[in-house]
Design a binder for these strands. Structure first.
Length: 513
RNA sequence: GGUCCCAUCGUCUAUCGGUUAGGACAUCAGGUUUUCAUCCUGAAAAGAGGGGUUCGACUCCCCUUGGGACUACCA
C-alpha cells in the first residue's frame, strides 16, 4: 500500500457514470429511514446507469451486533434494493463483490492507518493523549461558560520530544485532525443548495481511536475516495459534519464528491425522528404486520420526494421509479410518517393484486397459520376454500396479517350469537322464520355447478327477496355469519358452500323454535 | 447555549413571479347497498408573522417566530 499518493484523484468519474453508496452501520434492524436513503441512492444509480455500492460501516467495536450485517443485507435485497457492488446477496449467500474491497470497514484498518500516518507526517493531524476525564471537565467548563464544547488543541501544542517520548512509551492516544479556524467552508448541497460554515465551528475531530479503529469521519472520506464514489446522498444528520469531510478531502488532495443531504422522517407528532415507539420504525416490523414490500417502497419514496412537473401520480413501481427518479424532486423539509396513508396504499395494492398472487403472499408470510385458521374444520383449511375467503376479503383487507380477522365465521362450525339479531328491524320471529325457511328451500335446490357461480346465487336470491330485501336477506346473512356486520349473504354462501350454509340456516331456525 | 438546516390544507405534496393555490390520505355530508366494507359525488381545509425587491409575490432577499439536526475515542 506504499504507493498511494495523497494527490490521487484518478478513480473519480472515470466512466462518466455515477457511483453511489449506502453505508449503514450494522447496529440492528433496518430502519425505514435508512431504507429510504438506500432507495434514493439505488434509484439515482439506476436512473443514470451507475453503480450502487453497499459498504458496511462497522468501526464501532462497542456497538457490534451479532448477525446485524447479514440481516441488513438480506432485508435490503428482500426489498429489491440489492447492491451492484460491495456486500450483497448472491443467491442465498451474503458475499462481497467488486474491485474496491474489502467493503467492511473493520477489514480495512491498515488502510486507514496508512492515510492517518500520512496526515500526521504532514502536520495535518496529531496524536492526542488527553484522558476522557480531562476532555470531560474541559467540555463542562466550556458549556458552563456558554461556549461551544470543542477540543482545546492541548496536544497539538505539545513539544515534539514530549510527543516522541509518549509515543515510545506506548501511551494510549488518538489521532486528531488539525483544523485551522477562521476559514469559511462553502459547498453546494445537492438538495439544499449553498451551505456555509466557518472552520471555527469545526472541532479537531478524532480520526483514529485509541483502539486503532477509524472514526466515521476518517473512514467515509477514505473509503468514498478509494471506492470512486461520485455522489453522496446521506441523511440530514450529517450536514453539520460535512465541513470536516471537505477539509479532509482537501488535506489529502482529493476531489470532493457531489454531496446531498436528505431530510429525516418524522414520527406522527411531527417533531422527532420516527422511532419504534411510533408504531414501528423497522422494515421487518412493517413486513411482519402485513404491509407489502412494494407498498413500503412506494410510500417511502414519496416521503420527501415527488416526480414534480404537476404530476398527481402516487402509485409507482420500483422499476418505474428507476427510470423517473430525479434528485430535483427531493424535498428539504422533514416528512411525517402517516400510518393512515400507508394503510390506504396497502389496501389499494391488495385490491389491485391478482387473487393467486395475494394467496401466495399471505401463505408466504405465514398468516394462514394463525389459530383462527389452524383450528378450523379441515374442509375450511383447503387452498380452494381459502381462495374463496380471499376473494371476498380482498376488497376490505388493509393488511395481509388481518386475513380472516373480520370474518371469523368463515372458520367456525358453530356460531354463537343472540337470536335477537336475526330479525330485520322490527320484524317478528315469525317473519324471520319464514324468511329463513324460504331461503333454505331456494338454497337447497342449487346444483353443485351453480354453487361456484357467485353472480347466479346473487341473482336468484335477489329475485326471491323482491321489494323487501331486508326482510329476507338480513336474517339469512345473520344466520350464515352470526354477525351484524359482514360481507353480503351471496358472498358468504359462495364461500361456505351448500352443506355449511344449510346447516347454519337450520341452526338459526332451531333458535327460533 | 452555539452552529447549521427547514417552513403551502391536520398529513404527504403540486406550483419553479401573474392560478378560482391543484391532487392524495384523513375528516365530514350525500348516493349506491339487507349490514359492514367497496365504489361514486360533494364539502370543509393551507401559503407562520413582519418588512423589502417588483407593475405583480406562496414563489426572490432580510428579520422575527416556530420546528429540526448537530454539538462523542456513535454512526
Amino acid at each position: 500500500m506504499s504507493d498511494i499518493k495523497s494527490t490521487d484523484t484518478t478513480n473519480l468519474n472515470q466512466s462518466g457514470k455515477p457511483r453511489v453508496r449506502f453505508a449503514p452501520s450494522p447496529t440492528g434492524y433496518l430502519h425505514v429511514g435508512s431504507l429510504r436513503t438506500a432507495l434514493y441512492n439505488y434509484l439515482f444509480a439506476k436512473k443514470h446507469g451507475g453503480t450502487y455500492v453497499l459498504r458496511i460501516e462497522d468501526t464501532d467495536q462497542s456497538r457490534l451486533v451479532e448477525d446485524a450485517m447479514e440481516r441488513l443485507v438480506r432485508s435490503l435485497a428482500h426489498m429489491g434494493v440489492n447492491a451492484d457492488e460491495g456486500v450483497l446477496l448472491d443467491g442465498e449467500l451474503v458475499v462481497e463483490k467488486g474491485e474496491y474491497g474489502p467493503y467492511q470497514q473493520s477489514h480495512r484498518l491498515s488502510i486507514y492507518r496508512q492515510y492517518v500516518d500520512e496526515l500526521v507526517a504532514q502536520g495535518k493531524a496529531y496524536p492526542c493523549f488527553c484522558t476522557a476525564e480531562r476532555l470531560d471537565t474541559m467540555r463542562k467548563e466550556m458549556t458552563a461558560n456558554k461556549q461551544a464544547p470543542k477540543y482545546d488543541k492541548h496536544c497539538a501544542n505539545l513539544a515534539e520530544e514530549d510527543v516522541k517520548a509518549l509515543l515510545d512509551a506506548e501511551a494510549p492516544h488518538v489521532i486528531r485532525f488539525n483544523v485551522t479556524p477562521g476559514e469559511d467552508i462553502v459547498f453546494t448541497d445537492l438538495v439544499r443548495g449553498e451551505v456555509k460554515i466557518n472552520t471555527k465551528e469545526v472541532d479537531d475531530q478524532v480520526l483514529l481511536k485509541s483502539d486503532g479503529f477509524p472514526t466515521y469521519h476518517l473512514a467515509v472520506v477514505v473509503d468514498d475516495h478509494l471506492m470512486g464514489i461520485t455522489h453522496i446522498l446521506r441523511s440530514e444528520e450529517w450536514l453539520p459534519s460535512t465541513p470536516k469531510h471537505i477539509l479532509l478531502y482537501k488535506a489529502f488532495g482529493w476531489k470532493m464528491p457531489e454531496i446531498g443531504h436528505v431530510s429525516v422522517i418524522l414520527g406522527p407528532d411531527g417533531k422527532k425522528k420516527l422511532s419504534k415507539r411510533d408504531g414501528g420504525a423497522s422494515v421487518d416490523e412493517f413486513l411482519e404486520k402485513g404491509y407489502l414490500e412494494e407498498v413500503l417502497i412506494n410510500f417511502l419514496v414519496l416521503l420527501g420526494w415527488n416526480p414534480g412537473g404537476g404530476s398527481t401520480q402516487e402509485i409507482f413501481s420500483l422499476s418505474e421509479l428507476e427510470s423517473i427518479f430525479d434528485l430535483k424532486g427531493l424535498h428539504k423539509a422533514g416528512a411525517v410518517f402517516d400510518h393512515k396513508k400507508l394503510d390506504w396504499m396497502n389496501s389499494a395494492y391488495i385490491k389491485a393484486m391478482p387473487l393467486d398472487e395475494l394467496y401466495n403472499r399471505i401463505e408466504k408470510g405465514g398468516w394462514f397459520a394463525k389459530d383462527l385458521v389452524q383450528f378450523a374444520p379441515t374442509d375450511m383449511q383447503t387452498k380452494e376454500y381459502l381462495l374463496k375467503v380471499l376473494a371476498v376479503e380482498q376488497e376490505r383487507l388493509v393488511r395481509l396479517d388481518m386475513f380472516g380477522e373480520e370474518n371469523p365465521f368463515f372458520f367456525q362450525l358453530e356460531l354463537s350469537y343472540d337470536k335477537g339479531i336475526l330479525a330485520w328491524k322490527q320484524n317478528t320471529e315469525e317473519m324471520t322464520r319464514e324468511a329463513l325457511e324460504k331461503a333454505f328451500a331456494i338454497i337447497e335446490k342449487f346444483t353443485d355447478a351453480e354453487w361456484v357461480d357467485k353472480a347466479y346465487i346473487e341473482s336468484v336470491l335477489l329475485e326471491a327477496a323482491g321489494d323487501k330485501k331486508g326482510d329476507f336477506l338480513w336474517p339469512l346473512r345473520v344466520a350464515l355469519t352470526g354477525a351484524e356486520r359482514s360481507p353480503s349473504p351471496f358472498e358468504v354462501l359462495y364461500v361456505l358452500g351448500k352443506d355449511h350454509s344449510l346447516e347454519r340456516i337450520v341452526r338459526a331456525l332451531a333458535m327460533l323454535r
